[in-house]
Design a protein around this nucleic acid. Structure first.
Length: 434
RNA sequence: GUCCCCAUCGUCUAGCCUGGUCUAGGACACGAGCUUUUCAAGCUUGCGACACCGGUUCAAAUCCGGUUGGGGACGCCA
């Protein structure tokens, strides 16, 4: 059993391509077959090295490894040889315009396939015009190179998008003309954009690399892609690549097109962020913090970073969001949200802040529990409710109106920085506009 | 225009093949509540679908036909 994913390096790896690749990979791994990658770079002018690198990198990032790698650009002589044979047999002819193109004479018949997902599909090839095999620049066309290679490489199952159904009869007649036996076909449903049509940049991101840079974990993205057109059963939503291999069969794939739903992807991502473990999450977040210039390249406080991370792990849906939320802990001066500033300046609390700050400064055990004890004690002494003090304090320390629990936040921020920021807040109170 | 594919909550789906166990299950989203120092998270709970019409059958989400709707393909792109 052998399958392939055949991307064209004329663009980035997108959601649809990644899902097609995933289903091929899953099927190969589930059945103990092999999975090959074939780069369809026959269009010399549109193929770019940068796209190729991006595709290879994205596939590796997703965890989809291949057993063989082929390039169609290195096989032009093979296609030409086979086209020549077809020419000699009279199944193809030279273009009359003298351009050198080789054109296949379309037979009039009923082509039929037994699709693993759709069942029997029949086509009347009499409705299809003669097909170009070799273009005037002597490069092969897609349908021709595809058939030649699938046969040459021993592909047994062709798993590809629904949009290729109409290419199938053109390929079937070529298989027959060349005396090759037909592989099995499995046409999986397409992934539609939020609007209902094809996914496009307008309807949201399409490139896998964009999801990576937004801070999606590859496991979450792969998990989401699996759920589009397939279900592991038992109402299971969270599933690893490894577990999916044990349950996957291409026959169980759906027939119906699926609409891409960012909300569910975000939810899955947040689940993976919460459960992937502190060690792995730290590793993942570091590049995002560096990107934002919040930590230095090779010199930063790992323990502190881990502590801050823990504060926000439950609250973020992407690594990007997580890194943004962590920002107040890595900058010298707090930046205030508009609302935070309003809330914070509403009432002069410089007196209370002063008292609290001094008590914090005198603490030896600066743990969340101790901070809470001291805080509540001070509030009571001053005749203030905890709410009256907590919200302005959060604004003063983080610049935000929302965030982690106050005491955990203070403990992580540390005594020194807490005191420093409270002193700055007291100054702000003194100079606030009336 | 021609050909092809598809049709269960707003979205992803389970069920369909092998009709009865389906007053159709789960997840996301949304609403309410609990918890609470805010926001999340978590827990409880609500809302919400078999596109339509016919046929077969004692019985249809499940089988058949049609209608409508949606998607795709018709390149010397892949």
């Amino acid at each position: 059993m052998k399958v392939r994913f055949a991307p064209s390096p004329t663009g980035f790896l997108h959601i649809g391509g990644a899902r097609t690749c995933l289903f091929n990979w899953l099927y190969a791994r589930a059945k103990g077959g092999s999975f090959i990658l074939r780069i369809e770079d026959t269009d010399q002018s549109r193929s770019k090295k940068e796209y190729l690198d991006e595709i290879l990198f994205s596939l590796a990032w997703l965890g989809l490894d291949w057993d063989e790698l082929h390039y169609q650009s290195q096989r032009f002589d093979v296609y030409r040889g086979i086209a020549k044979k077809l020419l000699e047999e009279g199944r193809a002819y030279l273009a009359e315009d003298g351009s050198g193109a080789v054109i296949f004479r379309m037979p009039q018949k009923t082509a039929e396939i037994d699709d693993m997902i759709h069942g029997r599909i029949t086509f009347d090839t009499g409705l299809i015009k003669d097909q170009v095999l070799i273009k005037s620049d002597q490069s092969p066309t897609y349908n021709f190179a595809c058939v030649v290679d699938d046969a040459a490489m021993g592909i047994t199952h062709i798993i590809r998008g629904d949009d290729h159904i109409s290419n199938t009869p053109k390929q079937v007649v070529l298989y027959e003309a060349l005396g090759y036996s037909l592989p099995r076909f499995a046409h999986i449903p397409m992934i539609l954009g939020a609007g209902g049509g094809r996914m496009s940049k307008r309807a949201g991101a399409t490139a896998i690399s964009e999801y990576r840079s937004m801070g999606f974990l590859s496991e979450a993205l792969v998990n989401y892609l699996m759920l589009l057109g397939w279900s592991p059963g038992n109402n299971q939503e969270i599933i690893s690549l490894k577990d999916a291999v044990a349950k996957f069969d291409i026959c169980d794939a759906n027939k119906t097109a699926a609409t891409f739903d960012m909300n569910k992807l975000l939810w899955l991502n947040s689940q993976y962020i919460k459960t992937c473990g502190a060690g792995k999450l730290t590793e993942l977040i570091v590049p995002f913090l560096k990107d934002r210039n919040l930590i230095a390249d090779n010199n930063f406080d790992g323990k502190f970073t881990g502590n801050v991370l823990q504060l926000f792990t439950e609250r973020a849906q992407t690594l990007g969001e997580l890194a943004d939320a962590m920002k107040p802990f890595f900058v010298k001066d707090v930046e205030f949200d508009v609302h935070a500033k309003e809330k914070f300046l509403a009432q002069d609390l410089s007196g209370a802040f002063g008292t609290l700050k001094d008590r914090f400064a005198g603490m030896s055990d600066f743990s969340a529990a101790e901070i809470e004890r001291v805080f509540r004690q001070v509030a009571e002494e001053l005749g203030l409710t905890t709410k009256q003090l907590i919200h302005p304090l959060r604004a003063a320390l983080s610049g935000k109106t929302v965030g982690p629990g106050m005491f955990e936040l203070i403990a992580v921020l540390g005594r020194e920085r807490t005191v420093e920021r409270m002193e700055r807040a007291i100054q702000l109170y003194k100079h606030r506009p009336v």
